[in-house]
Nucleic acid binder design. Structure first.
Lengths: 125, 125
DNA sequence: TCTTATATATGATATTATCATATATGTTCT
DNA sequence: AGAACATATATGATAATATCATATATAAGA
């Protein structure tokens, strides 16, 4: 019981969890680091469920191990050093290949909401 | 590596996993049993990712333990006995309360696809 | 009889996410 | 100066979720 998001998606073996593709999408637009990416997740629409910080950092490292991104320390600017990630060609391919799955889920969710609306109206509530 | 779906959603503590709300939705429309629900998942749009059979059976049992559904054996008709599930009031409430989260995810996915389309067009691909 | 579809179930394991905690830099307030 | 806070990353232990491998059993069809 912790008021977090909802569930696996059985992505066993994908290696980058639920949030991975989103991070890959962000990094594809602009090289970025963990702390900033956390922020971007919220701006993107993650409100009720926002992944844990440690999850984000760990997924970034996983993605690097898988060769989907590379990282380098950025000492410039204020504050502590930032580990800045950049997408690789392999990362772009991965992103491309995950789109079909995302599309399916988007459709399933849309259909869920439509169906719910119907039974909510007709229902003995 | 198993070609399955994609990842957790950090639903720690929800107790009914990713597929739970869908099962609850189906059962709310019509009492049903595990084997049939598997079928309905496919009809609903689960193709690239379809949850494992054992996952479905286990989630149904969890939902019963949580008081979201009740079950009874149905001996009528052909074939082996079926454990038929019916939604409870608590189950309906649970379904209601999970809608906000589903809506957020649907929006996030939609935005993912829109953003991807943009960077795909403008991208050095 | 053999195969297939129907139907449920469980113990072991793999995968993913969070929790608790640690470290460190730089800014702002008092 | 000292305290508090925002920024920034990291890891070991633990919790939650999903699958794998396997077992059982009924009935229909070839």
């Amino acid at each position: 019981m912790n008021g977090c998001g909802r569930g696996f998606r059985g992505s066993h073996g994908m290696g980058i969890g639920f949030v991975g593709p989103f991070l890959l999408l962000f990094i594809s637009q602009k090289p970025s680091h963990g702390y900033e990416l956390m922020d971007e997740l919220e701006k993107f629409g993650f409100k009720i469920y926002i992944p844990d910080q440690t999850t984000v950092y760990k997924v970034l490292r996983s993605m690097e191990e898988m060769g989907l991104v590379t990282s380098a320390w950025d000492m410039e600017g204020a504050g502590p050093a930032r580990r800045v990630y950049r997408v690789t060609d392999k990362g772009k391919e991965f992103l491309d290949s995950s789109v079909a799955q995302i599309r399916e889920e988007e459709e399933i969710y849309k259909k869920f909401l439509d169906t719910y609306k119907k039974i909510e109206k007709g229902g003995e509530r």
